[in-house]
Design a protein around this nucleic acid. Structure first.
Lengths: 123, 123
DNA sequence: CTTGACCCTCACACCAATGTCACGGTTTAT
DNA sequence: ATAAACCGTGACATTGGTGTGAGGGTCAAG
C-alpha cells in the first residue's frame, strides 16, 4: 500500500511516516516511480511505534528493539527491560520535580489567600 | 554595577541576564560607552526572577507581574494568583500524564519479569 | 603602547517530533 | 489532454532558556 493509505489506516500523518522511515523504524520498498510501497504488516508496525512513543520513548530507543518485538514477545527482547527501567527512573524524577513545584505553588497560593481574604484590588 | 558583577553576585550567566533584559525583566541604563549599568536593586530583582522561573513560569508571565511584586507584597498583585492557578492546573495535568505512563511502564516491566522469571537470553 | 579583562551585538545550536511550505513528477479519471 | 489527487525531496518553523563563538570596542595596569 502507498503512504496515503497507511496514513489513513493508522491516523498517523504522512509527514510522521516519512520521519519514521528516516529514523529506521519503517523500511518500505520503492516502486519504479519512486513511491514508497508498504507491506500490510506495516500497519501493525506503525501502531507498535505509536505505542512506544506514547510511553515517552524516543525513536532512537524504539529503533533499538523494534525489529525484535515485531518478531517475538517483548519479554524475549533483552533491550527492552533496561530501556523501560531507564525511562521509569526518568519519569519518576520528573514527577518528583513537578510535585515539588506543585507544593510550592500551593503554598504560595495559600499565602496569598490568607493575606488577602477579601477580594481586594490593587493597581 | 556592570553585568559581570551582577552575574558574579547572582550566579546567573551573563547570557541569561542579557536575555532577561531582552524579555523586559531587567531595564539597566547604559553608560556612555554602551555598557549596561545595573542598580544595586537589580541583584534582588534577578533572584526574584530566578525564583519565578523555578516555579516553571515563562519570562512572559513573569514580565506580567514582576514590576508589581518588586514594589508590593505578592498578595497585592492581582496578576499573580490567576497565573499561579493556571500553572498549577498545568502541572497537575502533567503529573497525571506522567503517572499514567509510569503505571503503564510498571505493568509492562512486571509482565516481562513474570513471563521471563529466569535470566533467559535471546538474540 | 600593549596586554588582558572587561563589554557590546549578532547569530547559530540545542531537543525531537511534527506541521507546513515550495516545487515538481505520476497517475487516474474525465 | 487536462485537472485532480496522489507521491517525491528539501528545508524552515515550532518551544524557550541557555551555551557558545565570531568580530570588535573600552579601559586600566604595566
Amino acid at each position: 500500500m502507498k503512504i496515503g493509505e497507511l496514513s489513513a489506516r493508522t491516523g498517523v500523518s504522512i509527514r510522521s511516516l516519512r520521519y519514521y522511515e528516516e529514523q529506521g523504524l519503517l523500511a518500505p520498498t520503492r516502486s519504479d516511480n519512486g513511491y514508497r510501497e508498504f507491506s500490510p504488516l506495516a500497519e501493525e508496525q506503525v501502531r507498535t511505534i505509536q505505542l512506544y512513543l506514547g510511553l515517552g520513548l524516543s525513536t532512537d530507543q524504539i529503533a533499538g528493539f523494534l525489529h525484535c518485538v515485531l518478531k517475538n514477545r517483548e519479554a524475549f527482547c533483552n533491550e527492552v527491560l533496561p530501556i523501560y527501567r531507564e525511562k521509569l527512573a526518568e519519569i519518576d524524577s520528573q514527577i518528583h520535580l513537578l510535585q515539588n513545584i506543585k507544593l510550592n505553588l500551593e503554598d504560595r497560593i495559600r499565602s496569598i489567600l490568607d493575606e488577602r481574604p477579601e477580594g481586594q484590588l490593587e493597581e
